[in-house]
């Protein structure tokens, strides 16, 4: 996490400096506004990652540890990876028809809106389908998984001396 937030906050800082120089040198509005937007956008991203890092008390994840082994993370729940789903295609078609409506007239909202709304419903229902989640995982997720920093010994130490 550390490298992630440092990189992005670094980019934000760079854009901030460029923005300041640009403003005082050129006093041109558009570019300054855009650079400011870039600065703020990256600040938001980097800030979020920094916050996550703080919330973990700086404890590295297994992908941040140089000497992590698969054994210590095997079985770790990574997330949902649905094999196939029709709803993105429906939503994509709906999005395209929104575009078509903006070209050829508001008519096409009649096609676009049902497609998008239907897909949103289908999509959200699909990802919550309870029968798709094996019981063990559901049970495991309900367990308290609080982290005690003291349990993790000196994980910031480099792998190779």
């Amino acid at each position: 996490m550390k490298i992630e937030w440092r990189t992005i906050l670094g980019a934000s800082l760079f854009l901030g400096i460029i923005c300041a120089i640009y403003w005082f040198w050129s006093t041109e509005d558009t570019g300054t506004a855009l650079l400011l937007f870039g600065f703020a956008a990256y600040l938001m991203l980097g800030g979020y990652l920094l916050l996550q890092w703080k919330r973990r008390h700086g404890i590295p994840r297994s992908e941040d540890k140089e000497d992590a082994t698969y054994a210590e993370t095997a079985g770790e729940h990574l997330g949902f990876f649905p094999a196939a789903s029709i709803w993105p295609a429906g939503m994509g078609l709906g999005g395209i028809f929104v575009g078509v409506a903006m070209i050829f007239g508001n008519w096409y909202w009649v096609i676009a809106l049902p497609l998008i709304l239907g897909s949103v419903i289908g999509w959200s229902v699909e990802s919550e389908a309870p029968e798709d989640v094996p019981d063990e995982v559901e049970a495991a997720r309900r367990q308290d998984t609080n982290i005690d920093p003291a349990d993790i010994a000196d994980t910031d130490a480099p792998a190779h001396p």
Partner: peptide, 25 residues
């Protein structure tokens, strides 16, 4: 059809360092 993906690798049971412990599905 939803798949819950696990880290590939040997069986779990590492002594320490596990942040979120869940059984291998």
């Amino acid at each position: 059809m939803t798949i819950i993906q696990d880290r590939p690798g040997p069986q779990p049971g590492a002594p320490h360092g596990t942040l979120v412990e869940e059984p291998l599905t």
